[in-house]
Amino acid sequence: MPLSPDEIVFWQWGIVQLNATIVYTWLLMLFLAVGAKLITRRLATGLTRSRWQNLLEIIVTAIEKQIEEVGLSHPRTYLDFLGTLFLFVATASLFTVVPGYQPPTGSLSTTVALALCVFVAVPLFGIAEQGLASYLKSYIQPTFIMLPFNLISELSRTLALAVRLFGNMMSGAMIIGILLSITPFVFPIVMTLLGLLTGMVQAYIFSILAAVYIAAATRVRAKSRDPDAGASPEQQPG
């Protein structure tokens, strides 16, 4: 069996190829966009609203709240990016209950792409928040000796993001595939459920870590303004 959906190629023209990763990503994008469009087509601003609108409101406000809890004071600025990260990864793992589906996040190419997005987004948000000089200055904090370590940290954590998500998703798919060949009944279902849980946890971890990195990049000025703003949540779970 293929280790990554990248290996399932439907169409190829030179370097350009249409593999399962891209196709399933499009399907997910279609699902998310159409679903969101359908639900938000007729939004109620009154006190009564449809249960689907209620669900979306719960999801959006929960994400917003999580971002705020991480330490970002203006969660709506980061909601588009971080929320989409979470929803994409979560939906990708949620669809593993559909037989024949290959999660795009089980491809290292996808996770690398997502990690690269985070890698680029962090300095962008940091510079937008505190200016280029101030942001760059944060690399030589507390002393310039820390500069290489900070740089290595930037790279390694991006790599870690990509590999962690890939490893978890890929392993989940692999385990289910292997179990299906060994014990075709019952047990794969349990493992699918476990895979769903793992996928949700990974989606949460991925987006929360991205939020934490952004928070760390935008926090310096806030910290200089308010010393009691709390310690940097520079922790690496998973």
Partner: peptide, 29 residues
């Protein structure tokens, strides 16, 4: 394991998805 074309495509896909979500989900909600 890494297909760089796919990486680029996914990067683009993700950015499009961010825009789509912003357009159809976050803003209206």
């Amino acid at each position: 394991l890494i297909n760089w074309f796919t990486v680029g495509a996914q990067l683009l896909n993700f950015l499009i998805l961010v825009w789509l979500m912003k357009r159809f989900l976050y803003r209206p909600i």
